[in-house]
Design a protein around this nucleic acid. Structure first.
Lengths: 242, 242
DNA sequence: ATGTCTTTGTGAACGCGTGCACAAAGATGG
DNA sequence: CCATCTTTGTGCACGCGTTCACAAAGACAT
């Protein structure tokens, strides 16, 4: 993935493949939606369609967690929600700090998807003294000087970096020194961290560049196909309006 | 990727592996930094360190593009910047529309990483009539009604969806019907699109959940190691109270 | 021109992830 | 209790991606 997969060499954590872990939140979201509609059970086929994956893959993914399905019936929605939540560690409360309260940081602070999944924004931190005390998403921004005490007072182990690229590595080092062991990095930089610290990267510009590559390829193939009336391979799909 | 990889079944586009394409922007960024420091050449070892990857992987990646290096010396920075830019399609101008100008949409509009890489924000679109005309990042927001005409007038082929989850699929369908063939989706939903349309997904909540999983595992291993000095089987994780 | 030294480019092996296809398991009806 | 039908769980094969290790290639000094 977006990104940013590949942050671990090849560590298979407790038998659950990394690729499976990355899909569990996807299943969880689909299951939560079913739960809200009071659907009691769901088959692997239905759930796979809702999550946008192959049903065999989904069944294999679940098989790593245990045998939670009933043959001939499917999976119990509520039970599965609980099991996946537990496996992902979402049954406990994760205090999170966001460093860098610019446009992106503010957007993250306001993002509803955090609170609903066991994540609690413990603090917003910015280096600009003018920001200190200003409320963003109902939380007063604190100055970078407070970083270390905030982390240790709240027992924060997950940090989000939304600073400019130039500040990211330094912020990262302070976070790690203060006890943070998982970092979600939005700054367009490669962070270097000691062993035992997980980093996941989200890079908006990179995603767009990948799209541009495919877009260019499509345009190229099109021109190519238009030029030669007789294409040897006919794998160009007709674009159907949804 | 994060993120969000795996949006294509297994299509190897024009001989260049998908995994390689995803890393090209990373190399490009490192090379651009070197270029700004007027470094003339760089070895695969140095560049790999700057990009945070294995040097053998980097060389193999470049080998898909051609033989652009000089043995005994390394790679010419400027030349490589050009070649990768061309391969990614960044030598041309890509007009982009952003739909959904909330916190996140505004952050994206203000994000500097777009303009510097051949992407031009052609329009900001929001469904709220109260937003229409309001300038965000120096561009006046336009109403959703204008969506189709904006797309066709500007020849937009890349769209960014930053709407709430409920609106995403509908917006997506309108974008596709109007001619967009690449979509970057920030809404927490699985978009269904016709063949020929690329979708990349960035999901903030999913990234955090993956971090939480590893965080929990780290905490579990720690507790396990502390509790049992010599455990016979170590596959049963101690369930920690929430 | 020749030898040495550095660094690229790649052949080959390995491991992970994916998807097919099917047997095992349980529900359901008679 | 038995037959049938649905759906899970998984053995297996295949392909992609990663990494090692080394031969080929060029720079540079003598």
């Amino acid at each position: 993935m977006a990104t940013g997969r590949n942050h671990r060499p090849a560590t298979r954590s407790r038998g659950i493949p990394e690729a499976t872990v990355a899909r569990l939140p996807l299943y969880l979201r689909a299951l939560t939606a079913l739960s809200e509609r009071s659907v009691p059970t769901v088959s692997s086929e239905e759930l796979a369609a809702a999550a946008g994956v192959n049903s065999a893959k989904l069944r294999k993914d679940f098989s790593y967690l245990g045998s939670y399905g009933t043959r001939g019936v499917g999976y119990d929605v509520e039970y599965l929600v609980y099991q996946i939540s537990r496996e992902l560690g979402l049954t406990q409360d994760w205090p999170v700090v966001i460093v860098g309260i610019g446009n992106l940081g503010a957007a993250l602070a306001n993002y509803g998807g955090f609170a609903s999944r066991g994540f609690r924004v413990a603090a917003l931190i910015d280096a600009d003294p003018a920001m200190a005390g200003k409320p963003v998403a109902g939380i007063a921004v604190q100055h970078t000087d407070e970083l270390e005490s905030i982390i240790s007072d709240n027992g924060v182990s997950i940090g989000v970096i939304a600073t400019p690229a130039g500040a990211a590595q330094q912020v990262c080092e302070r976070l790690v020194a203060a006890g943070v062991t998982s970092i979600l990095n939005f700054a367009p930089t490669v962070l270097s961290v000691p062993d035992g610290v997980d980093v996941r990267k989200v890079d908006l510009s990179i995603e767009l560049q990948i799209l541009a590559f495919h877009e260019q390829r499509k345009a190229g193939e099109e021109a190519e196909a238009a030029a030669s009336r007789k294409g040897p391979d006919g794998d160009m799909p007709a674009v159907m309006p949804a």
